[in-house]
Design a protein around this nucleic acid. Sequence first.
DNA 1: TGGCGGTACTG
DNA 2: CAGTAC
DNA 3: GCCA
Length: 662
Amino acid sequence: MAVSKRSCGQEASPSKALRRDWAYGIRLFVVPLGSATASRRMIWDREIKAAGGCLADSPWSATHMLLSPEVTPVRLGTWAEKLLEARGRPAANDPVTSVRILSKSLQATWLCTDWLIACLAKQCRVLEEKFKCCLDASTETLDHEDRDCHFIADGPAVAKPQKTEGSSPALPASATASPARTEAESDDSDVEEVLPKLRVFGGEMTPKRANLLRNREKFACQRGGQDPPKTSGSSPPKSRNEKLVSMFSRLQQHYESLGDGWRERSYRLTASILRGLPFEVTSEEDLDRSELRRLGKKTRDKLKEFLNTGSIGRVDGLHMDEHAKALAELQGIWGVGLTTARRWLGSGCRTVTDVRSQVQDGTLRLSADQLIGLQFFEEFAQRIPRIEVDEIIQVVQAAVSRRFGNRLRMEACGSFRRGKASCGDVDLLLCARSAKDELALGSTHDVLSSLVADLHGQGFITHDLKGGNQSHRRPGGHVGQDVNDGEEQQSSTAATYFGVCQLARVGSLHRRIDIKVYPVLEFPFALLSFTGSGPFNRSMRLYARRAGFSLSDHSICRAAHARGNGRGERIWTGPPIAAMQFASERDIFEFLGLAYREPWQREVDASWLAETGTDKQAAKQATAATTGLAADVSSQASSPPAKAEREALGWKDEDEVQSLSD
DNA sequence: TGGCGGTACTG
DNA sequence: CAGTAC
DNA sequence: GCCA
């Protein structure tokens, strides 16, 4: 695909010059151990080259050796021994000595991988001092080998949360970590604990971002600590205020079917707040309770009206049965949205049955997708029991293994991954297991279409919805000379398929199934995004936005709001943040300074807006606290804020970047 | 007063 | 581009 | 409908 046709690229040119050469003169060799996996190394290699550096064929020609912090002395020693042997040099008997011998015979500086990460984040050459590995020194500590005894004594002690493994997003398993607490729940995590983490926001802290960090628990994506995956039993607490809740739910549904998503969201929030209220609203004084502080004037008026008259005019006035109800039903057909529903309503179709008969008559013409949606209207409306989702997964997995062996990894996302007992559809995400596999597999589109063909052949997939056929090849010829020029491919795009499947079993229903194939680099983002829930995603993206980033199912980019000059604010997004930092979902949370949330903890029901410092007190406090901390960080991570540099790079300065004004 | 998630495909 | 979907 |  011809890269993102939009915004991107735009501002690449001024930055190029500088980005080009921060690594000038560096010949880098990455030690292939620990978290420096093949795919990461590949990316690092690419980034270094892009920055004007080059790669060393072997350690012997390197100026810089890069070592990931969690590699133990013993493992490094073993590696060093092999290296020495291969070079025909005497190795020592014990690993430590071997390492020392090796490092002596090399000319290189040994640095922690975090150095490169910092460089990439800042797009400049970060001081090396704090990132040096001390390769000796540890003779005695080495005695009781491994574990806890890592290299990298020095630096910013990036106290990694020692996740047992890079990315095993699949199951909670509990096998490894303490089953009790789910990390980072320690909470009350003050900024003081978060900020020193070098990686947060790529190491670029600003007062606003710091303020955001302090308030991060006001976002839905940080709410709700731990629900155990709900072990049956207790029914939902049946709130008081039931009447009110149902009234606002009606309003919500009404606006939903009308397509006013904003009011819908607003009312859903109100309903959700009322539902969770620990008391019953009986008087106007109750409206001052802190739990209701986010309700706006209109909503308060409705509540008052209810308290006085026992009903709400606006709600009673909903003659919702003719309009909204019919609209809602029609929009229940896959492929039919608000506009079509309205059009059909105008032509006398009020129900699915009406539509069917008009289709028969030939008075109504539907798209191919809509026809399928219509045909299976009742079946698609049925929830899919979790067990059946399991079976469906098995079928697809079998096909995947048959065709691609072990090269492909598959995750079921959506509500299934969040642990729900039933799902609306099946959402499968595929990705090569490694960079090498990715090469061997060929394009994502080819992989997907051959898999789909297989499933089609065995009769499992019964119908295609849009996306089944991408006529998007590159014939090599034309191409409208995109403005893209040099700046790098995003060549491997994701491939998506929407379809209908059915288990080979009597009485099984047709089910909606989505299959997607993503490039390795984008996998964590895709996983995060397709796991949802919707409100959770919105919340997290909003948070990212406030921090000056744009989060998508592909990557995270800097985002700048170009404001001023004329109408609306346009949003320009820069190149993706060096993707290598993100090998798992955790890395994304970590980058944003958010506490990790297990899939089942992402079941938020209302999105949430951070109330950013309407409270002057708090705001002041925040800035005070953060300026100090920001200083800390920058002193750690080398170089002063480098405002000039940022300007030279063509980035908007922070003050302009944020739409957030205090 | 404008923002409120970000992206891909089809017609 | 509008419409729909994830 | 709520927020900046």
